[in-house]
Amino acid sequence: MSLPIDVEGVSVQFGGVRAVRDASLHVPAGSVTGLIGPNGAGKTTLFNLICQVLPPTSGRISIGGVDTTGMTMTRCAAMGVARTFQTPRGFSGLDVRNNVQVMLPDPRDSFLGALFRPGRGSDARARANELLDRVGLRDVAEQSHDRLSGGEQRMLEIARQLALSPKVLLLDEPTAGLDLPHQDRLRQLILDMRDQGLTIFIVEHNIGFLMRTVQYLHVMNLGEVIASGEPADVTRDPRVVSAYLGRGADAIARA
């Protein structure tokens, strides 16, 4: 069952700065939806609001019809909301497989469980391997996280999020630092995940990648949502062109 994301009239204020102003948008259930906009438009802030890393100053966020405004981020995560970060994060002291395995929920990872029933089931290990296969990192499973390249860390972060079996996945600039073969792999992965019912919301500056991947597109500028709709229509919107794309964009979009 796929869950839609609804953001209704959300604002957030940092001191005197209104980073997001009265933003409303809808991410349809089971879709791949993009979010673009110039630097500082409030895209990442909106992501932080959706997964409750930041509480909104006003407005309402709901996921699958459930109001998540003001929930703790841990509870929101437990509802099936996963996200990646603009700068890949990870557990630098763990190897690649453990980075994924630690995300799998395991009843034994309690303090008493550690004393009396240590040892993780081999099923967890198998599941971690399977996820590493999906992102193409199986060969480096034993390596430490620090040794991965930036692009590999990005793919690993996606594998880690998939380990949570999320219903909603927020990707913050997933193609930054990825070469073209990996971008293709990522695109295929995103489409596969969508086919399995995930709702995927992507912040991206790589317009070419987005045009080939998303079904819907939202555009933010200065904290406001200025356009929403089908990618082809949105990218022709004169406000979007002047705020973000510039005149050369049409050519890129067609390419």
């Binding site: 996963a82 994060r89 763990l94 034994r108 303090f111 240590p118």
Partner: peptide
């Protein structure tokens, strides 16, 4: 006893919390 605890999945979770609290809490770790 400590080696048993730290070598278990629980020990891995502790290390994950140490390395990146935000990523760990977004994974539902308390």
């Amino acid at each position: 006893v400590i080696r048993r605890i730290t070598a278990s999945p629980y020990g891995t979770v502790l290390k994950a919390v140490r390395d990146d609290e935000l990523a760990a809490s977004l994974a539902g770790k308390r």
